[in-house]
Simulated assay, not measured.
Amino acid sequence: MDGGITGAALRRGVDIDALMALVEAFEPPRNGHAAATPEEVAAAERVSRAWTSAEAGPLQPGSEAHRRAICAMFHETFNPYRPAVIDWPRLAPEELQRLTSLPIWDIAVQTEGQARLRFAAYAASLGDREMQATIMLNAWEEDRHKQVLSRLVETYGIALDKEPAYDVPRDAEWGYLLTGFSECIDSFFAFGLFDLARRSGFFPAELVETFEPVIQEECRHILFFANWLAWHRARLSPWRRLRFELRVAGVWIHIAVLRVGLARTIDRKPRNDNFTVHGAQAVSPVPMGFRELLGVCLSENDRRFAGYDARLVRPTTVPWLARQVLRLGGWRR
């Protein structure tokens, strides 16, 4: 298995500098630090969308076969693209204005910055070497996402607020759950918004395609998280499982409080009072309400997961909630 890290080295990380050192020293699969050829990136892109485990039989959550399969999926679908060599396309003035006016850049950069530390901290708490290496790869990829975003905002002159001081989670599992479930929410809507941007022609096709590996990488991330969650739950005793489910409920409540606070923060700025719908309007010339956006997100969610082994668990909470909203039919724009 790629990713040479030791349990002793991981357990040293108790502050931000130590955790970042672990992320930066991590060796991703297929020499991911080296420049990959366009052919290698294209081949990895194909594999990242269609993967089947070599494990025979059902992948029962909690089993060793399930653990091996989800770790293998994450490593074998690794894409070796490098942010430093991305050729950002030149934008026309109106395209640049659309890009810079999107209300996402501060939040996106800060989210990736925090995610890499939370994933690294959780990896540092584990004794399972294979799971350790897989979650540390996830942390490394989150750091790569931050590099992509940082280069984008630098290239196009997008002004950002000063990044806040990132914190090291005192409770590594809580931080991992909080970030994992948050990514499930964000990725679900990102799938739909990205498809709208692709179809609308509001942005050059070259710019959209530049971000395609990042979006598919988020799909891999939440696929792994959903399967880790199923695997972890299945291994708990009844009492530990009850405690864990109470913790999961607490995480969802915490996310809800954070999202309400975020909405209020955005509402104080000169932008639309519905962040998600405003995002849809910013990437498409066609007026779209929240229910229509949910339909696009559900379709894209199903499409992006379709190529992965059907025996793997899929994220279900956010798609289920979206389907309930569509069934109710009472949402107003």
Rank of each mutant, 00 (worst) to 15 (best):
M1W: 07
I5M: 14
R12E: 13
R12D: 10
G13H: 05
I16P: 00
A18H: 02
L22Q: 11
A25S: 15
P28G: 03
P29D: 02
R30F: 08
H33Q: 06
T37R: 10
P38Y: 05
E40H: 10
R46Q: 11
V47H: 12
A50E: 14
E55S: 12
G57Q: 05
Q60T: 15
E64G: 13
H66D: 10
H66M: 11
A69W: 08
M73N: 13
H75S: 14
H75W: 13
D87F: 02
W88F: 12
P93T: 04
E94I: 09
L96M: 10
L99I: 00
D106K: 04
T111S: 13
F119N: 10
A121P: 06
A124L: 09
G127R: 05
M131W: 10
I135L: 11
L137C: 09
A139C: 04
W140L: 01
E142L: 07
D143W: 11
V153D: 00
Y166G: 00
Y166Q: 02
D171E: 09
W174E: 08
L178N: 08
E183W: 06
I185C: 08
S187A: 14
F191M: 13
A197T: 02
R198Y: 12
P204Y: 04
A205S: 14
F211A: 08
E212V: 06
V214N: 03
E217A: 09
C219E: 11
L223F: 10
W228R: 12
R233H: 11
F244W: 05
A249R: 12
I253M: 14
I255E: 03
I255K: 06
G261K: 11
G261I: 06
R271D: 09
N274R: 13
V286E: 15
P287A: 04
R291T: 14
R291P: 08
C297V: 04
L298D: 02
S299Y: 05
R303A: 14
L312M: 05
Q324V: 07
R327W: 06
G329H: 04
